[in-house]
Each structure stands twice: as structure tokens, then as C-alpha cells.
Design a protein around this nucleic acid. Sequence first.
DNA 1: TGGATGTTAACTGTCAACACTTGCTGCTGT
DNA 2: ACAGCAGCAAGTGTTGACAGTTAACATCCA
Lengths: 233, 233
Amino acid sequence: MERRTLTEQVLEALRKAILEDRYPPGTELQEVALADSYGVSRGPIREALNRLSAEGLVTIRPRRGAVVTGLSKQEFLEAYQVREALEVLAVKLTVERADDELVAQLEQYVSDMDEAAAADDIDSFFDLNSSFHKEFIEASGNRRLQEVHAQVIGTMGRYRRRSLVLRGDLRPSIEEHRQIVEAVRKGDPDEAAELLAHHISVPQKRLLELTEAEFAKDFNSAEVPFATTAKEL
Amino acid sequence: MERRTLTEQVLEALRKAILEDRYPPGTELQEVALADSYGVSRGPIREALNRLSAEGLVTIRPRRGAVVTGLSKQEFLEAYQVREALEVLAVKLTVERADDELVAQLEQYVSDMDEAAAADDIDSFFDLNSSFHKEFIEASGNRRLQEVHAQVIGTMGRYRRRSLVLRGDLRPSIEEHRQIVEAVRKGDPDEAAELLAHHISVPQKRLLELTEAEFAKDFNSAEVPFATTAKEL
DNA sequence: TGGATGTTAACTGTCAACACTTGCTGCTGT
DNA sequence: ACAGCAGCAAGTGTTGACAGTTAACATCCA
């Protein structure tokens, strides 16, 4: 019947649910409840939770169950720093292997972002933004880098809609993207790296200005005071 | 009796065994065999293997069991690139927070390395070298960076004794370390970062010169042609 | 002899039941 | 009232058994 294993199916479904914010940070993921709703036994659920914990999406407290991981301001900032280092590496590697096709693809993303911004279509904008950055990672040709980056992004990505406040006006962001593409076309790895580093540092600096409380308000609203429990699906 | 969970104990024992090369790359880790030797049921074994797979130490092939992960030359090179990016970030962050105590600690490591090299004590040298680099990661104050770095190092670390061939003479390496410490003391993040990048790039360049076959010979001797099966302990 | 096919042993995927912790609730005594 | 303790309910940790798949071996037919 099903080619894939139950664990994989559950894993995918849970990951999707967490990334789409249907299980917000702080949600308790109880094995029996999940087993009931997915119609499987606790075994596959436990395995899936284990792997999600390795991805950083859930935290397992021994003998006390699993909860959807929430990032503090400090942790979010730390993730940003790592992400910056990884993407700077990616862009350096990519510039050396860039071809016309890649440049065209990147330009396409930028102009699509332009349209999305003009239409105030925030969701599309962020999707395009993610694709733009991911393009560098994949074009780098370094699979390990892809894995590690996906992991870091995974824990941050859940917040992306809320993080509009960090980015502020979209137009400067698009212009920054455009400059990065230009540096890639010129084949200047150092300039591209510097531009990218600056681009990523913008929301980082905004983040620093927020107090922990303001951060919690915008980013972890579901975490306090009563943690909801995962139900159904 | 035991405060910790069985899974954790098995996890730790397995990880140690892999890192110490008692289970060389390519070793098949069969659940029943491991369960017998550790005196537990398959449940904890499966969980431990899952987590190890997340750490990159073992590879799980659906329905075909787990094997100790081996790195190809390409994968090893990719890991080196990521490691370089992470450590460069670490050193930049660390320089800004460095105090006299840290500098003293780093100098201690360097002089100990000097002694170990003079006594031809390769094992001690590599231990000290690991500690030196790890010191930056921990001093950076970025926990996420620590996690990711530990993950990347974990898959590379198993090869460290074999990788002496990549480093060649130990004396230049020690001198490089000394220069890095000096830059940290001066509080110059860019110089420290550049020195560290150069330091890490040395074995990378050597690695590039090896053919895939030479690499496999020195680094993955246990992977071909007959994979051994894990037994006892 | 060589290749395709049936058979079988070994192993993983999954399940349901049991044991043990943990945190809560309500009692008791002061 | 309130602190402390006992009992209880809920949930995780662990186990052993069963089912399904894989891969190797033996067998059969050209």
C-alpha cells in the first residue's frame, strides 16, 4: 500500500503543522493524543518526535514529554548570527560556480518580490525571499551546508510572518537583493559576501533594540500563560 | 536505581564507541545484536540510533538498518568548509568578549601543544588542538553555534588521528595557533578571523590534492570490501 | 553453464501491554 | 488558613511479540 514508513508520514505531518504555526511554540505534544489522532501506535510518534527534536523544532524533557520549541530573543539572535555565517559561505562558493541561468533565476526572484511588495502580498514576498536565499545555498553545491542551513532556518522560519516588524519597509530590502545579484554577475565574491552580510544584519540590529518582553509579545504569544495541547488532525 | 534513561545510556555508549573508532565507518549496527549486548530491548536502541542519525554519525536506510556513516572526500571537504565558516564566526564573536583569563587559557593550550609535539605525543596534540578550537566556540557565548559546530566536528572528529597526513609538520600549525592568540589579545577580530581561516584552509588544500582512492585508503579503510558487524560490549 | 525464479532466514516496522515517574488533589493535623 | 503528606490519575519509559520486507541462497529451466 504505502511505500513510505509510518514514522516518515507522521514526521512530515508534524513538521508541517509546526512550521505552519498550527502547533505554536509551547504546545505540548503528548504521545497518546498524537497516536490517537494519527491512528497509529506510540512507536512511530516517538520516533518522529525524536527526529523533530534533532531538528530543533521540539524540545524533549525527559519523562515529561515534548513541547514545540520557542525561541527567546537571545536564541533568535544567535540563530541569526549562525545563519549569516552560513549564507556568507554559500554566496562565496556560489559566485565561483555561477552561470547565466543562476543569475537569471535570481533576477526573476527579485522582480517577483518587487511585484509582491507593490501588491502588499506579504506571504508571497516572504516565500520569494526564502527561495532567493535558499537558491544560494543550493547553488553552493555543498550538501552539508544545505543540511545545516535547513536546520537553522527551520527553527527561525516559523517566525517569518511575525518578523515583518524586524524588516520594516520592504523596498530597501529588495534593493539590497538587487545589489547582491549584481555582485554575483560581476563574479566578485568578496563584494557579494559583504552585501549579503549587511543585508542579513539589518533585522538583527532591529532585533537587538527590542526588549525581551516586546519580543515575547510579538513572537511567542502562544507560549504564555496556558500552554495549549495539540488536538486532532 | 539509574537516574538517567536507558536510551541516554545507550546513546552515550554508542556515540563513544563510534568516535573512538571501535565501530569504524561502514559497520552495520543491527538492533537485535545491540539490544543483546547492552541488555535492553530494541526500543531504546532504536531511539539512540535515531538520534545518532540526526547527529550524522550513523545513516539509517529504511528497512535496511543503520550503518556507521563514512565520509567521502567530497563530504569531508564540505564539512571543512562549513567548519571554517562557523569557527570564523566564533572567533569574531569571541574577540569582542575576550578577557585575560581566556587569553591565558589559550596560551596554555598552545604551550602544551608545543610540549606534546616535542614528545611526539600525537594523541595529546590532537586533543589539545580540539580543545583550543572548542574554546573559541564556547567563549563565543552562542549556544546555537556550539550545537551546530559540535555536529559538524562530530562527523569529522573520528578521522582526526588519520588526518595527521593532512596537517603534515606540527610546528607551523603551532605557530599559527600562537598568532591567532596574539590577534585575540590585541582585540583585532578581522585579523584573528583571517588567521583562523588560513589555519583551517591548510588541511583543506592538502585534502584537495588527494585522489578519491588515496582518501579512501587512509580514511575509510574499514568501509571496503566486507563491512564488519558490531559485536558485544 | 547461466540467468531467472521460488524459498527462506534475518531483520526492521509496528503494536499493545506493563512498569515507573511525575505532578496534582484532597485530606489531615496544627 | 496553611503546610505537609498520602493517594491518584495521566503520561512517559520499556518490553516482548507479531507482521512485513529485504536480500541471499538454492533451485529450476533454457
